[in-house]
Design a protein around this nucleic acid. Sequence first.
DNA 1: CCTTGACCTTCCAGTGACTGGAACCCTTAT
DNA 2: ATAAGGGTTCCAGTCACTGGAAGGTCAAGG
Lengths: 130, 130
Amino acid sequence: MNIGDVAEATGLPAKTIRYYEDIDLVRPARGANGYRVFRETDLHKLRFLGRARTLGFSIEDCRTLLALYEDEQRASSEVKEIAERNLESIEAKIADLRAMQETLRTLVSACAGDERPDCPILADLGEAGE
Amino acid sequence: MNIGDVAEATGLPAKTIRYYEDIDLVRPARGANGYRVFRETDLHKLRFLGRARTLGFSIEDCRTLLALYEDEQRASSEVKEIAERNLESIEAKIADLRAMQETLRTLVSACAGDERPDCPILADLGEAGE
DNA sequence: CCTTGACCTTCCAGTGACTGGAACCCTTAT
DNA sequence: ATAAGGGTTCCAGTCACTGGAAGGTCAAGG
């Protein structure tokens, strides 16, 4: 399978797949013409990576998770710890974003949004730290 | 006022303030010794920027907002549009993160987290796209 | 006067995870 | 023979900083 087909099959852009090879997350074989040749195991890894990335794991976490996935001697506690840390950082981000959301909602709904200059949004920004 | 005092007064790292000068968000004067000299208006701008950044506005949005802030002929609609776009992108991010959070919570709570290899988290990742 | 330490300066490189683009090679169909 | 549509490498750019090196300046103490 060439990279284009793999991109379609996994939903990952070809560029991303090449990047994953570059950082040694996958090691596709090469054909006589220099093209990458992907086997089923490569596809499986790439789908694993795609899924892990959509769950917010960093590339380094993905690398570790992939190694654990292939390690039959693993302890599930190792996996769980990584997932818990990821969950925590996601929840922290949500908290930050929700604070922004709340303030912005208030400000936006207070703003007339017309041709006049008066604006509670700018008023808020201008009063920062006073 | 030197950069260290400004950093303390605004809560922004000195590095960040220098960076903001570099990209022309602020233009502090210079003393005879080459040190940056910040006036009240610079402080005000920096606090504005700090506040806008914590509300999730991009640097380019901050630049525009600052220009609008100083433009007495502005229309509040321009400000409101920027804020609404920012709010939308924040809400999109929250939605993504909440989806991750939900899946991760389920997977984490299903994982024993002990010394055995069996792990629903890895099972989920490994079944991606099947 | 000298040193010490805390400031300040510039400049370059790195972060994370791609993404875009140039320049070029290979394959297949017409 | 050529054109379209793959593929290849490599370099640069994104965003908003952040770290670090190498060096200049300033105020206080000995």
